[in-house]
């Protein structure tokens, strides 16, 4: 077990695993997202209050979930890197940051255009919306640090520290709808109770959420591989790969 984990934590072991797994993740992500989009846009019933604007939920909720999940994953990777000095953890954190920023932006944008017909405003400085905007700036900060400091060790440490400090924002996003008065409705899904919407509304949402998570996995596996190649380009095992083509 430990030997296996040790092998996985080595760039070379992870590389082999990623080559095998990532095509499946990409395929699954594409399939689930196409099915979920067609189902959600064309077949799910319209909401009796919100009408068809409710269909924005099928991009809004998966994007918001991913935005936070990616951040937490990055923070865990940052901790692993700082404590155990495992380079692979930092490579993975580097790989997933842009997707996290994109998903945070998508959650904010889809929320804003959903807000216009539903709340009569596209923006409000309330707790949920503001903490989500802060998340976007945290992503920008991490990306800017890595961009400015290049691939050096100091960039990795600074980005990890910033990610870890910013993780305080995640429970604030989570509980903002309960702690403060906000326009935003409470969570649609919870682990403990059945969803408060009919199954032909939440099933396509579930498909979309799973599709987005598959995409997260696919992007992270593939981009971590690229990061490994970039940082270890002079190693013998990487040079040996060129014999096999691309």
């Amino acid at each position: 077990m430990w030997a296996y984990l040790h092998k996985l934590a080595s760039p070379q072991g992870f590389y082999a695993l990623s080559v095998r797994l990532s095509p499946w993740c990409w395929g699954l992500a594409l399939t689930l997202m196409v099915v979920g989009t067609i189902w959600g846009l064309g077949f799910a019933p319209a909401d009796y209050q919100q009408g068809n604007s409710f269909r924005i939920i099928y991009v809004h909720v998966p994007a918001a979930l991913l935005a936070q999940s990616i951040y937490v994953t990055m923070a865990v990777a940052g901790l692993v890197f700082l404590v155990w000095r495992i380079k692979l953890a930092d490579m993975a954190a580097t790989a997933m940051a842009p997707l996290g920023a994109a998903m945070t932006f998508l959650a904010l944008f889809s929320g804003a255009v959903w807000g216009v017909p539903t709340w009569g405003t596209w923006w409000q400085w309330d707790a949920r919306l503001t903490s989500m905007l802060l998340l976007l700036f945290l992503y920008f900060g991490v990306l800017a640090l890595r961009g400015a400091l290049g691939g050096r060790q100091s960039a990795a440490r600074a980005a990890s520290v910033l990610t870890l400090v910013g993780v305080i924002n995640i429970p604030i996003i989570q509980y903002s709808v309960e702690w403060w008065y906000t326009l935003h409705q409470p969570a649609t899904f919870s682990v403990t109770s059945r969803p408060a919407m009919p199954s032909d509304m939440w099933l396509p949402l579930l498909v979309m959420v799973l599709g987005f998570y598959c995409l997260f996995l696919a992007v992270t596996l593939t981009r971590t591989r690229h990061e490994i190649l970039r940082r270890e380009a002079s190693r013998r095992w990487v040079r040996a790969l060129t014999g096999e083509g691309s």
Partner: peptide, 12 residues
């Protein structure tokens, strides 16, 4: 989209 086309399609 029942008059909500702008919002739905811009989000997608």
């Amino acid at each position: 989209m029942g008059g909500h086309g702008v919002y739905v399609w811009s989000a997608y």
